[in-house]
Design a protein around this nucleic acid. Structure first.
Lengths: 220, 220
DNA sequence: CCTACCGATCGGTAGG
DNA sequence: CCTACCGATCGGTAGG
């Protein structure tokens, strides 16, 4: 066995575990590059240079640029889940978990400004692929909807248990919350405005801590 | 005079007025392409094909791709000014003009979904160039700040004349309004969600029609 | 995983 | 405004 040199994407000298590790390194780097340059600006040549590999070596792990883009999106999704959702997932569903989620999300976007280079990959990709069709567009849209669902779910619970007034509409409020985070991301990335997180927190207090429409205070 | 064939970017057969008209056509097309493909995805070759010109003929009007990108941004800015700001500029400063401006802005983004191809060029460009430095980044940031100033200005007046309660902070509210429009643009472009304008109007009613923080109604 | 290569396209220039 | 061209880089393939 293993007589021919060509065995898929792996060099004969590398084990499957090593190949998997390489693949992870490529994805990690792809998320970093993609959040700065966009998913089209993420080129295989740049990736190969950064990682000290050949272009064919990089591409062999995915088969096509589109597959690489999709893998980068999945990688970014896992990162978001690990850093934002998992730390709060076990909290009490409803307003408690929602508030913790929103705070973790703010810190995630703040970190991206320093630790990661170019802001939220999903925001970048959603603008880049919004008009086009195809698998990348669909994947971005699906991830965005998934995030929206997390918000709507806890908002619905919060209304049911009386943490938010009855006239709060989860879909409407989730729409407003999402816009708030797009604004935060832009403020951090385009203007490097360090006061934006505080602004976001104040808006959250108004949206979640005081009753929309009626002005009645929540149970809290 | 006019003996040599080469006289800048214009063919000897074309008058200065014709050359200006050509330049405008290039810019118009650049805004359309750029809002779909981004300002990096806006290529001179694509532009030349669309307009039935040679690449050199296109580039001659601007000198470099970066100058073309800046011209496209200026073109988009003029479009926004003409379609959103000018129709409301003569209204009574304060809440009246602000509301009319916000409504015109919604309709502008709605139109873009059908008439123009790819949503707001500034939103696209701001994400594309947020991390990078350089003239394009600076121009995008300047235009965004200009829009923000329009909001803040009327919000300040609205507070001064008592149309909005004293505890409204114009900068804070402008930040929230801007996020709302980024969310609207994404909803229209990425999801083609026709209910987003109504959601935006409801959020505006809450932000501008009822007092934040206190719950006191505005004079209206 | 590599080298070596493909056709296509990129931004831009020379010269008229 | 054009033709003709430049070197660089793109995504991807052949073959080992």
């Amino acid at each position: 066995m293993r007589t021919a040199g060509y065995d898929g994407c792996m060099s004969p000298r590398k084990s499957a575990a090593e190949a998997r590790r390489t693949r992870e390194r490529i994805i990690e780097r792809s998320v970093a590059i993609g959040s700065v340059e966009g998913l089209e600006g993420l080129t295989i040549g740049r990736l190969a240079t950064d990682l000290g590999m050949s272009k064919a070596g990089v591409l062999g792990h995915f088969g096509s640029k589109q597959a690489l883009q999709l893998a980068a999106l999945h990688g970014a999704s896992e990162l978001f889940t690990r850093l934002v959702w998992e730390p709060v997932a076990d909290l009490r569903p409803g307003l408690v978990r929602l508030r913790a989620f929103c705070e973790a999300w703010i810190r995630y976007l703040e970190q991206e400004r320093t630790a990661f280079p170019g802001g939220c990959l999903f925001t970048a990709a959603s603008v880049e692929f919004d008009t086009r069709g195809g698998p990348v567009h669909d994947t971005v849209a699906r991830f965005m909807l998934r995030g929206r669902r997390l918000l709507v779910n806890d908002l619905r619970i919060a209304v049911e248990v009386g943490e938010l007034p009855d006239d709060v509409e989860p879909e409407q409020l989730a729409f407003e919350l999402h816009g708030l985070y797009m604004g935060l991301n832009q403020e951090l990335q385009l203007f490097a405005d360090a006061t934006a997180p505080a602004r976001t927190r104040r808006a959250l207090d108004r949206l979640l801590g005081a009753a929309p429409e009626t002005g009645a205070p929540p149970k809290s």
